[in-house]
Design a binder for these strands. Structure first.
Lengths: 101, 101
DNA sequence: TCACCACATTGAAAAATGTCTATATATTTA
DNA sequence: TAAATATATAGACATTTTTCAATGTGGTGA
């Protein structure tokens, strides 16, 4: 763990978009192919492809190619990493007082 | 819990920016006033003020006014909410096969 | 009251992101 | 091989976000 601030921000950027949240929620019910996702979310095919790239790059989602189809699913490992990252980030290490002002 | 996709995305938007990640990391060592944060991060004062607003709006950070100073700290409750949100979002409900293609 | 200080707000410019259309690539099937 | 299908990529455009300079607000102390 202990990613750079840039990498950390990148991880959470995957979760910054309303449509990507919808996609993840759909994937909670198991693996889905791109065409099915496209049916359920109102964006064009290239836009969906872009979102799937962002999600896969973040590690939260994994893609599996089967012939001409792409099947996507939530990565348990990616989800675990994200949770650990958020947990570490928001952990208060020392409850010291503000010695500044 | 069970926020809308829009609200969920908004929560994670607070974590999307490299400088805001740095700010949270600084706050891990305890409450800090705005002027101290400003010393440590290379942005102008209005930009810092903007980031603090985003962080406070998300609930992850709380501000406490004391005279003319603002003291910021990580909200344990906000952090808990964010963790629960991410945990629920990435939980795989059913491991069904893709019945699509 | 007046000057000063810490912080917030406003408005504008620059950068990043989401979206589309058009096109390319890869795989299957006739 | 050629057509059809699923997905990816490229390029353009609009929106959103980050940032700054300028200014406003509210508290402090001379």
């Amino acid at each position: 763990m202990e990613l750079s601030e840039k990498k950390t921000a990148e991880m959470f950027k995957a979760l910054c978009d309303e449509n990507r949240i919808k996609i993840i929620k759909l994937l909670q019910n198991g693996e889905k192919c791109a065409c099915r996702l496209n049916e359920e979310i109102d964006v064009t095919q290239p836009t969906m492809s872009h979102h799937m790239k962002v999600l896969c790059d973040s590690g939260l989602v994994v893609g599996r190619k089967e012939g001409k189809w792409m099947h996507y699913s939530i990565s348990r490992e990616g989800a675990k990493t994200a949770l650990e990252l958020l947990s570490e980030l928001t952990k208060v290490k020392i409850d010291s007082n503000d010695s500044c002002c």
